[in-house]
Simulated assay, not measured.
Amino acid sequence: MIKNMEMDRERLREVLTLSRIGLPEEKYQEVLDRVNEILRMCDKMQELAGEDVPPFEWDVKKAPARRRDEPVKWDGRDAFLAQAPVRDGDFFRVPRIIALEDEEE
């Protein structure tokens, strides 16, 4: 079990970069304080005794009614694809999200 979790500025910068979230430098401390408060709350929750708590069970009889899963032919594909800003055959062409700016596609 991990205890006393804490995030520092460098780790926050790494997470923001991987998440592609732009954050001004002056907001780092505010976000860091919030994240660390959440991590402290998680630490407190790990201290709770949960051994005697029964697992959650889903009552299938009380579950909401479900519709039948039947295939339906949809004729709107071509009209939908015609709205794509960039198209590659039958697919949308989208920018790569994971690559960093200095990497080539």
Results as ranks from 00 to 15, higher is better:
Ala49Trp: 15
Glu10Leu: 00
Arg96Cys: 05
Ala99Asp: 04
Phe91Tyr: 14
Ser19Thr: 05
Glu10Trp: 05
Ala84Glu: 13
Gly22Lys: 07
Glu37Asp: 15
Ser19Phe: 02
Glu14Phe: 06
Asp8Gly: 11
Glu70Ser: 03
Arg20Gly: 13
Glu103His: 07
Pro24Ser: 03
Leu16Asp: 10
Lys73Ala: 14
Asp78Met: 03
Glu26Cys: 04
Glu105Cys: 07
Glu70Met: 06
Pro85Lys: 08
Tyr28His: 05
Met7Glu: 08
Leu23Lys: 08
Ile2Gly: 10
Val86Gln: 14
Leu16Thr: 02
Asp75Gln: 09
Ala79Trp: 04
Pro85Ala: 09
Trp74Tyr: 14
Gln83Phe: 06
Asp59Cys: 05
Leu48Gly: 02
Arg11Ile: 02
Pro64Met: 10
Glu6Val: 00
Arg96Glu: 13
Phe56Glu: 15
Phe91Lys: 13
Met5Asp: 06
Arg34Glu: 14
Arg66Asn: 08
Arg68Gly: 09
Gln29Arg: 08
Ile97Asp: 05
Glu101Met: 12
Cys42Phe: 10
Pro24Trp: 07
Met5Cys: 06
Asp78Arg: 09
Pro55Val: 01
Asp59Gln: 07
Ile2Asp: 04
Arg20Ala: 14
Arg20Asp: 12
Asp59Phe: 01
Glu103Gln: 02
Leu48Lys: 04
Pro54Met: 12
Pro71Thr: 04
Arg40Asp: 11
Arg20Ile: 10
Phe80Gly: 01
Glu103Leu: 09
Val60Ser: 08
Pro54Ile: 12
Trp74Glu: 15
Val86Cys: 15
Asp8Glu: 15
Pro55Trp: 11
Gly76Ser: 11
Arg34Thr: 06
Lys44Asn: 15
Arg9Cys: 12
Ala84Lys: 04
Leu81Ile: 11
Glu103Trp: 08
Lys3Gln: 02
Leu12Asn: 00
Val53Leu: 10
Leu23Glu: 03
Asp8Asn: 15
Leu100Tyr: 09
Val35Ile: 10
Glu101Ser: 11
Ala79Cys: 12
Arg77Tyr: 01
Asp33Ile: 13
Ala79Thr: 07
Arg87Ala: 11
Val15Tyr: 10
Trp58Gly: 02
Arg11His: 12
Pro85Tyr: 00
Asp59Met: 05
Glu26Val: 01
Glu70Tyr: 04
Ala82Glu: 07
Leu23Ile: 11
Thr17Cys: 00
Ala79Met: 15
